[in-house]
Design a protein around this nucleic acid. Structure first.
Length: 570
RNA sequence: CGGGGCGUAGCGCAGUCCGGUAGCGCACCUGGUUUGGGACCAGGUGGUCGUGAGUUCGAAUCCCACCGCCCCGACCA
């Protein structure tokens, strides 16, 4: 491509709305333009990147035996009513009515439509397993779209759905897809980690997320540096302390703690460490009754774990201040287990504590020296908290560390959740009707572009991998319109690389050298050849990779082969 | 949904407190000079100051309402 025939629209300054490096750089480089909150146009340059990601995804999906199809973005409400999600999905589902007043949604995902296809098309076990995928626009009406294409409302997703006669078959395809995902992210040049994950609103059993490691990530991952354990903190198990509970020593004492509402204030007021306190959270049980959850003062309640407990409302509902006062006779900030007659669930760590400090169920008062068994009954025990740095790894191999990640892929074993609700059945060998097993597999194609930039940029711009860059090589002539020699050398190299199938940009724009060089760096083009009269005097041009600190002089006669060698192109 | 902030030219901003008929940098157009790191000179184009309703002789500026956008929060009692 000749830059003069293309559309390059870079900005020296990023619009004020962008905060995250990837978002700023995507706007500055002119890859995307915002249309409305969470809605972006992909400009020609950005679309090239998106297409490259898509091509790799398709290549690996095809290789994994998945078959591409295309489902509509607009879906009838009836299908969602059948699966039960029309009611369950909530406000993120964009619902619309057509001219006949019939209800539809703009698809945030496609389990319903694909299951409808499977139940209509598949009759026999002989047709299974099957794996379909599509690359398509999704819409999720996010509460707070942010970070440009990373959490947009409309985005491009590759979603695949597999159908099976039995769980064993599902597990085989799940592994095939897991492996394909690893190849995709590796080929894209991303530093990523597959982690065990919660299944969330999609439902099902086994699940892994593919997380691109980045400081700005919205997810927290717990991993073990000395083993291959890795899980989203939502899921990572906090093991029970191995040391037994110490014997009670302190007497139960009520202390006045005026205006103390938080653990921080409590620690200051009593000059104690948070690890000696316990934090009380009141949630609703399945019948709406208050349930008291207890975690250590310096720990965090894990909502996902809490709502999985039997008898707890799911999704989790926090009790209202009024309900709390009615049940405890005290305001939030002074709650504790002593004297509370309802259900109490203590985190494993809390269950192993002695001489604790907790709320007294009396406004502006706390108890010190609280002990299980002596001052109140032994509590029900469960894993309720987020793991913290240094916790023992659940696989028994060392301790956990935490890092942040951007979720770019997610694979699920859905099992029969949708097939059952929507009666996706087949006839088995014996002629008996059976429910299909299902898997689903998603990749956030547009999010990958943001995530990749988040993982690769410097003060000059983007650092794209060869696989994702809008162009692999740029030829930057110093004075294309002024020097016949420069023009000839640039044109020759351009023709040669193009003929070799290299995605090359000849920057023949009538701009000053500084503009051409700065734009190439902003766009993250990984390989650059600078051609100028200065070098040509000695029959030389300059090669510099985007990540190199210095240019390499290369004889003009050898530059094409030199670049091809750098790219690994024959 | 709660809190904070911001809406003035395509982008970045000043002007708003203290009302007087809109400005700077970049970008863009024309001409000239330049040409190995975002050039220089000269001349130009472009704005219902987010929208609506008020106060006033007069509103970007003051008052009210609305809309849009960004950030933080929406377990941590």
């Amino acid at each position: 491509m000749r830059a003069s025939q293309f559309f390059i629209s870079t900005l020296k300054e990023a619009p004020a709305e962008a905060e995250l490096p990837s978002h700023r750089l995507m706007l500055r480089a002119g890859l995307i333009r915002r249309v409305a909150s969470g809605l972006y146009s992909w400009m020609p340059l950005g679309l090239r990147i998106l297409k490259k990601v898509e091509a790799i995804v398709r290549d690996e999906m095809d290789r994994a035996g998945a078959l591409e199809l295309l489902m509509p973005a607009v879906q009838p409400a009836e299908l969602w009513e059948e699966s039960g999600r029309w009611a369950f999905y909530g406000k993120e589902l964009l619902r619309v009515k057509d001219r006949h007043d019939r209800e539809f949604c703009i698809g945030p995902t496609h389990e319903e439509v694909i299951t409808d296809i499977a139940r209509k098309e598949v009759r026999s076990y002989k047709q299974l397993p099957l794996n379909f995928y599509q690359v398509q626009t999704k819409f999720r009406d996010e509460v707070r779209p942010r970070f440009g294409v990373m959490r947009a409302r409309e985005f491009i997703m590759k979603d695949a759905y597999s159908f099976h006669t039995d769980f064993d078959s599902l597990k085989v395809t799940y592994q095939t897809m897991f492996d394909a995902y690893c190849r995709i992210f590796t080929r894209l040049g991303l530093t990523f980690r597959p982690v065990a994950a919660d299944t969330g609103s999609i439902g099902g059993t086994g699940s892994h997320e593919f997380q691109v490691l980045a400081e700005s990530g919205e997810d927290v991952i717990a991993y073990c540096p000395t083993s291959d354990y890795a899980a989203n903190v939502e899921l990572a198990e906090a093991l029970a302390p191995t040391t037994p509970r110490p014997a009670a020593q302190a007497p139960l004492t009520t202390v006045a703690t005026p205006r103390v509402k938080t653990i921080d204030e409590l620690c200051q007021c009593l000059s104690v460490a948070a690890a000696h306190t316990i934090k009380a959270v009141v949630v609703e049980g399945s019948e709406g009754q208050p349930v008291l959850l207890l975690v250590r003062g310096d720990h965090e309640l894990n909502e996902v774990k809490a709502e999985k407990l039997d008898g707890i409302a799911s999704p989790l509902v926090f009790a209202s201040p009024a309900a709390i006062e009615a049940a405890f006779g005290a305001k939030p900030g002074s709650l504790g287990p002593v004297g509370f007659a309802g259900r109490i669930v203590a985190d494993r760590t809390v269950a192993a504590m002695a001489d604790m400090i907790c709320g007294a169920n009396q406004t502006d008062a706390h108890l010190t020296g609280m002990n299980w068994g002596r001052d109140c009954p032994e509590p029900e025990v469960a894993d309720l908290r987020n793991v913290v740095e240094g916790d023992p790894s659940p696989d028994g191999q060392g301790v956990l560390a935490l890092c942040r990640g951007i979720e770019v892929g997610h694979v699920f074993q859905l099992r029969t959740k949708y097939a059952e609700a929507m009666r996706a059945q087949y006839l088995d060998r014996e002629g008996k009707l059976q429910t299909m097993e299902m898997g689903c597999y998603g990749i956030g194609v547009s999010r990958i572009v943001g995530a990749a930039i988040e993982q690769g940029f410097d003060d000059r711009g983007i650092l794209f991998s060869d696989a994702m860059a809008p162009f692999t090589v740029s030829i930057v002539p110093m004075g294309y319109g002024r020097s016949e020699a420069v023009k000839a050398a640039a044109d020759t190299l351009y023709a040669t690389l193009k003929a070799a199938g290299v995605d090359v940009l000849l920057d023949d724009r009538d701009e000053r050298p500084g503009v051409l060089l700065a734009d190439g760096e902003l766009l993250g083009i990984p390989h650059r050849v600078v051609i100028g009269d200065r070098g040509l005097k000695n029959e030389q041009v300059e090669y510099q990779a985007r990540r190199d600190t210095e240019a390499t002089a290369v004889p003009v006669a050898e530059i094409a082969d030199f670049v091809r060698a750098k790219l690994g192109v024959a």
